[in-house]
Every structure is written in structure tokens, then in C-alpha cells.
Design a protein around this nucleic acid. Structure first.
Lengths: 90, 90
DNA sequence: AGAACTATCTATAATTT
DNA sequence: TAAATTATAGATAGTTC
């Protein structure tokens, strides 16, 4: 996306792929932090990769645990359909 | 970030905040999709907001469920420390 | 292997429709 | 309100050190 447009496909070259991963992971975490701060919302992200020994998370392990606990309390069906009461709000 | 620099703070104006949320959420999901594709990694994100009746997720509800299940299988301590065997790989 | 640089691509704030 | 536009801030591919 800069010196040349990047084709949206797996980067075959190992070192290029790792370099891109490190840069983009950093950028993504920054974006998520900005979204959360600017809009006052809760969010989390978990990223697995061979480059990090443990999953990279945002905002923190405890923050992720809190949000996924909430996510799991949603009945399976409600995770896909709109809920009427909140629909009214939006 | 464009016509004017944005201060990293909660956007007080309701309509501006909502507009920013919608744009940035879309951008974030695109970035996560790109990271996953380019680098061949597994990742997920969950975003809660008053603008969407249900949490917005990437890549899908089932994908999120799969990844958080894996995350939860990590012993609490391992979620923060480096693991020696993978350290060698990186 | 990284850290830094920089040219240029992308995301998006403000504006218009 | 929401979608489209556009000017500009930000992210990053390729390169250098």
C-alpha cells in the first residue's frame, strides 16, 4: 500500500510476510484503540500467529476475557439476529 | 485524520461520533481481513456499541467462537508469558 | 534480525448532495 | 440521516542502514 499496491493474497516470502505482519498488527491495534476511545465502545481482538509465542490481544488479557464472557452469554441465535429493543435505540 | 487532525478523545457530538464509528468499524474489519489473508494467521474481533444491536464480529460468529475457545484453553499464566518452544521458532 | 526512512497508497474528517 | 465526494492525515511496501 505504499511503494506499490499490495495484492490481497498470502505473502509467500517468509521475511516479507513477517515484516508485514509486525507492521500491520501494530497498525491494527492502534486503530482499535482509537475506535474505542473516540466512540466510547468496548471491543477486543485476538491474533494468533507463528511470530508471537502467545496470542496478541487488545486491550489486555483481562479485557478480552471480560468481553468474550459477555459474548458467550448471548444465546446462539441472538448473536445473529437483531434485537427489537435496541433496534429502536439506533 | 484528514481534513483536520483528530484529537484522540471521546467525540462529544452524537452524530459525529456515530458517523465516525461506522466508518472506522468498516475500516478496522477490512484491515483485520487483510492481515489475516496476507499473513495467513487466525484472528478475531468483537465490537460492542450502541449503534449495532449485536456485537459486530470478524470473521463470523462461528469463527469468533472457535478462536475464543482456543484462547480460553491457554492456562491463565501462559496467556502472559512466552513459551520457550515457540520462542525458538521466532 | 531489526530499526528507520520515505514515497505513495489508504483511511477518513469535513463537506456536499 | 445517510450516501457520495474530496482534501488531507495516517499507514505501510520497499528500501536503506
Amino acid at each position: 500500500m505504499t511503494r506499490k499496491k499490495v495484492k490481497l493474497a498470502f505473502i509467500a516470502n517468509d521475511s516479507s510476510r513477517k515484516a508485514t505482519y509486525k507492521k500491520r498488527k501494530k497498525g491494527l491495534m492502534k486503530k482499535l484503540n482509537e475506535l474505542s476511545t473516540l466512540c466510547g465502545i468496548n471491543a477486543c481482538a485476538i491474533i494468533y500467529s507463528p511470530y508471537d509465542s502467545n496470542p496478541e490481544v487488545w486491550p489486555s488479557n483481562s479485557g478480552v476475557q471480560r468481553i468474550i464472557s459477555e459474548f458467550r452469554t448471548l444465546p446462539e441465535m441472538d448473536q445473529n439476529k437483531k434485537m427489537v429493543d435496541q433496534e429502536t435505540f439506533c
